[in-house]
Amino acid sequence: MPDEPLLSIEGLTVSYGAVEAVRGIDLTVKRGEVVTLLGANGAGKSSTLNALVGLAPRKARRMLFEGADIAGQATETIVRRGMTLVPEGRRVFSSLTVEENLMLGGARHAARGDPAAVKADMLERFPILAERLHQKAGSLSGGEQQMLAIARALMSSPDLLLLDEPSLGLAPQVVDRIFDLIRNLRDRGLTILLVEQNVAQSLEIADRGYVLANGRIELQGAAADLRASPEIQDAYLGA
């Protein structure tokens, strides 16, 4: 079915012991869309992304990715199906070289295309990484590490890329470069679910958005509508 969403989640709950970080949210992402998750710190955005790839304890009525049930599946299985996460804080393997980070990103994906070709493509898209190929990832600047983290995730040729706070802690001009990169990925047709603090820029890039508060969806809609909504204006855009 062409109209079937790439990702379809119903009643997702994430609990850490007695603390419920996400309380029964519904979420869909269609193929080719950029969807953004907004909300204050602790609203449950990162928990949602981690739960989608099986890195947070989750329960859901329905968790379908490309039509397949991913509710009980291990992280590696979900990633092999084509959904991957660039985690918050970049988390590159700092004692490994840039090249080794990229190799691990493509390690299990020979079936999804030729890893050497994907790597060549990455290095063309991220010339800074090509220059630093044999450098330890830990020696890169924050912006370069973020690019490496994204390139590493792209090495698996994912169908859905989850990005968790890609601009966090970066200098303003670096943030612009990261958003240019996300825009470029969108224009190439990659489906993206983006969690960001930078509400203005992410609503500009996204097709649709969800606003989370206390683990529940408070607001959702087309990005343009959200940008215009008084709640968003008041809370995030400082109008």
Partner: peptide, 22 residues
């Protein structure tokens, strides 16, 4: 590759799983 995966796992096991490695 198995050796690199082990070094990466020692650093950050959760992220290694995000590479699709079992």
């Amino acid at each position: 590759m198995a050796g690199r995966a082990m070094r990466a796992a020692a650093e950050d096991f959760a992220v290694l799983r995000l590479m699709g490695l079992r």
